[in-house]
């Protein structure tokens, strides 16, 4: 079902265009000229060994991390810096506006503990999107129901299970109606029995055409749910393509083969 859009998706000008992205922490080069495009409606999954720069890549897209050179454009607009090739950082308001259009779901949920599930979803709608309290509440209830938590709208995060918290995290991100959703190992902090309910939500968002760039260690899920898989190693894209191709490439790509083998040994 998702596979059918795959051919068309890649040919259009990408919604997210990352070109020659480099990023160092001190002397450590974490991203070494990464090129990656994500078309509208496309689901791209990044896999790769720990420390290969996956998280950093996602954080750069939301400008939670500055980058040294290269460019990240969403809908043709440079993310963190004023265009013109310069390195002039955007102002606070501009950055906030760009981030509002880029949803992010975190490995550690990062729900606001002092706000109920509904209030977590409502905050951005009220203070960023300028919706009235009633509108925001209605939208929050809609999205919470969408992730199966309509009945938990008035619970505090501390009263929810990890899987429920993460689903609130997803509702909080998608309620902003972002152009693209970034998901960084969103099931890694969950007990195994809670992983399924969260992945199910992601799967249904994908089916509805949400553009997503995600990092996951759930290889089987990545294979089923994504249009393309990108394998990162040492801060570079080492392989990319349709899931079947990339996973098959394990036979002749040594790094990828080793990565997947380690994976199967420890996770399946």
């Amino acid at each position: 079902m998702i596979q059918s859009t795959q051919g068309g998706a890649a040919t259009h000008a990408p919604l997210l265009a990352i070109e020659g992205l480099t990023k160092s922490f001190g002397k450590v080069e974490v991203l070494r000229s990464v090129d990656l495009g994500v078309a509208k409606g496309e689901v791209v999954t990044v896999i790769g060994p720990s420390g290969s720069g996956k998280t950093t890549l996602l954080r750069c897209v939301n400008f939670l991390e500055t980058y040294d050179s290269g460019s990240i454009r969403i809908d043709g607009r440079e993310v963190g810096y004023k265009d013109a090739g310069g390195r002039v950082r955007r102002g606070e308001r501009e950055l906030a506006g760009i981030r509002a259009d880029t949803g992010m779901v975190f490995q550690s949920f990062n729900l606001f503990p002092h706000l109920t599930a509904a209030e977590n979803v409502m905050l951005g709608l009220r203070k960023v999107r300028g919706k009235s309290k009633a509108e925001a509440r209605a939208a929050a209830e809609h999205w919470l129901s969408r992730v199966g938590l309509g009945h938990k709208a008035d619970s505090l995060p501390g009263e929810l299970s990890g899987g429920q918290q993460q689903r609130v995290g997803i509702a909080r991100a998608v309620a902003m109606e972002p152009k693209i959703l970034l998901l960084d190992e969103i099931t890694s902090a969950l007990d195994p029995e809670l992983v399924g309910e969260v992945l199910e939500v992601v799967r249904s968002l994908a089916a509805e055409g949400m553009t997503m760039l995600m990092v996951t260690h759930e290889i089987a899920f990545a294979r089923d749910a994504s249009h393309r898989i990108v394998f990162m190693a040492d801060g570079k894209v080492a392989a990319a393509g349709p899931p079947s191709e990339v996973l098959a490439a394990a036979s002749h790509n040594q790094r990828l083969g080793a990565f997947l083998a380690r994976f199967r040994a420890s996770h399946f």
């Binding site: 939301n62 308001r93 981030r99 259009d101 975190f106 990062n110 606001f112 905050l123 960023v128 902003m176």
Partner: peptide, 22 residues
């Protein structure tokens, strides 16, 4: 935790709003 400010940034809150609401 740093994740609180990051989650607040991610939904597009400005610096002042992050302090005030989060």
């Amino acid at each position: 935790p740093a994740g609180q400010a990051e989650a607040a940034k991610a939904i597009g809150l400005t610096f002042a709003a992050r302090l005030r609401y989060v």
